[in-house]
Design a protein around this nucleic acid. Structure first.
Ligand SMILES: [Mn+2]
Ligand SMILES: [Mn+2]
Ligand SMILES: [Zn+2]
Ligand SMILES: [Zn+2]
Lengths: 141, 141
DNA sequence: CACCAAACGCAACCGGATTGCATTATGAAG
DNA sequence: CTTCATAATGCAATCCGGTTGCGTTTGGTG
């Protein structure tokens, strides 16, 4: 579990350790799928922890600001969050079970970015790339 | 101007020609940047046309259903719309002036999709890819 | 012109997210 | 252990993009 590593990092940074902070970090680092704010609130409630939704949003903002988590758009109007990975990468999102696999292809993307800069003078600063489809276990149904 | 072509296509399809329809199609096909629903409403209002926001949303839905326009996510919580291009493609979005360039790279993306299917059994159904950066004219500032 | 479905306006509503403000709790200092 | 500053929290109101139900208007055809 990387929960402890994240929390001790934050502690070293001089930030307070609160119930909600511990619970949100644990929930996110223990989840295979990205979680929305409401997902988080529900999870905490199920763990008998009473939390206000505003607090959840503020904790998300806090963790985003410190680069602990990042957000993903599924395109349904809700932001989802998950603990930041080591390097920039993309996602293959299962439209059936919402499981997310990480896709690394930075060499290719860098190549494309250079091509765009060369051919049209457009200086690429960032990009988003998500694949939607059926994961291995959802495929055969 | 492709406005007329779109409108006569719709007419042939047996759809009514209304003030709002004409204005929305004209606004979208005449804009270099994708427009949000509110953008459209504002533009029409400036042209001394009084429109209800619900009507704008319904006209957008109508044009989407007929494949006349498609939506783009800038990632700021608002959908943007623009007239459909010929083929599937991607965008290079200027973060300074919001101008959008179309990027075609389907051969490469198809290759990536096949690789993902081969390597992890994930069947890709669709993908989103957007580049953010500085366009040619915004680059030097 | 008469007629009907498509289009429209309006008001209420929805859900995700944000804000202002008063209250509580963390953690460090004494 | 107590004090204290401030970070974190709860709550209610609010925002904002978008949707819905419903009654009215309008486009286009006969
Ligand atoms: Mn990720
Ligand atoms: Mn496009
Ligand atoms: Zn799946
Ligand atoms: Zn620009």
């Amino acid at each position: 579990m990387k929960t402890d590593a994240i929390l001790s990092n934050l502690k070293e940074g001089g930030y307070r350790m609160t119930r909600v902070r511990r619970a949100v970090v644990a929930a996110l680092s223990g989840s295979a799928v990205p979680l929305s704010a409401l997902d988080l609130k529900t999870l905490l409630s199920e763990a008998a922890m009473r939390v206000n939704k505003t607090t959840v949003y503020r904790e998300i903002a806090f963790l985003m600001d410190r680069g602990v988590i990042h957000e993903i758009q599924f395109g349904d109007g809700k932001m989802r969050y998950r603990v930041c990975p080591e390097a920039h990468h993309h996602h293959a999102i299962c439209v059936r079970c919402s499981r997310v696999e990480e896709i690394t292809m930075e060499n290719d993307m860098k190549k494309h970015e250079r091509a765009i800069a060369r051919r049209r003078g457009f200086k690429v600063l960032s990009h988003t790339l998500e694949f939607f489809g059926l994961c291995n276990s959802c495929n055969g149904k």
